[in-house]
Amino acid sequence: MARITMREAISQALMEEMDRDPAVFILGEEVGVWGGTYAVTKGFYDKYGPERVKDTPIAENAIIGGAIGAAMVGQRPIAELMTINFGFSAMDYIVNQAPKLRYMFGGQFSVPMVIRAVGGGGRQLGATHSQTPDAIFAHFPGLVVVSPGTPADAKGLLKSAIRSNDPVLFLEHATMYQVRGEVPDGEYTIPLGKSTIQRPGKDLTIVTYCKGLELSMKAAEDLAKEGIEAEIVDLRTLRPLDMEPVLESFKKTNRAIVVEEGWKSYGVGAEIVSRIYEQAFDYVDAPILRVAQKEVPLPYNRNLEQAALPQVPDIIAAAKEVLK
């Protein structure tokens, strides 16, 4: 095991897969000469050259549409969106083309493409650059939506995403590239579409993913000091959604909260809560609560921005509320 950052884990996954499979190449804005705006592909241009690390124009439709086309004819492109917020410019490709082409043409081809995109608030980038719109993308059948919360998961899931024959949207968080964690040595993958228990507990279930995992782990430590043991289920993949570990945990604890960074309305939490009520209603001992972003466009000012984002004390308060 080595203790590395999220950035290093993602970078390793990309490099290992590029070394393994010549069909894999990267395209996106500033991925090459610049080294990636979050430095994830630093050194790639020198190692692999301009054919495999393609700097594109600032043209999201050309980037994602181009990746779809290259994938349909047998390559394995990894398209990088500088931020998921720019993904809205290419919405047609992400939600209306990539997830539908296989089905609409009777399975004649597939779209083995990964879109890597950075999302999330907390860096004072203002309302249009700080969103966590994961739920929007997870709405569409045909797309796989992955969002890891640890370096080990990021590496294993990204490797699986690159090998998958389906289009995968891989959502990273802008404030988590320096997060460190233990990563297994050598070759490993983590299957897409599998939730997992990141922390065992018996008193309540916290369902979360990505940035929410980081916050929930901290909240769980504080709760433990008060004798409350939270079990944390990390979704890791939002579509297809694996409810098994969630339901298993909930049937044990009978109480749950969902923590996500996106807005509460129509969000990931809404989906999880509905499914628990539909599939485990007899086990419900208290209303299930959601911790999420306040319903505002994220402001620039640091204090205001932090007030809008979910925080550790919000999670602790919600946990205590469902235990009342």
Binding site: L27, G65, G69, A70, V73, Q97, L101, F105
Partner: peptide, 25 residues
């Protein structure tokens, strides 16, 4: 014959993508 695409203009970047794939190959 790669379709038949019904979002006006939507298949043009995909066509560019075919050519990216062929160039890469």
């Amino acid at each position: 014959m790669w379709g038949g695409h019904a979002i006006v203009g939507g298949h043009l970047p995909i066509a560019a993508g075919f050519a990216i794939g062929d160039q890469y190959a």
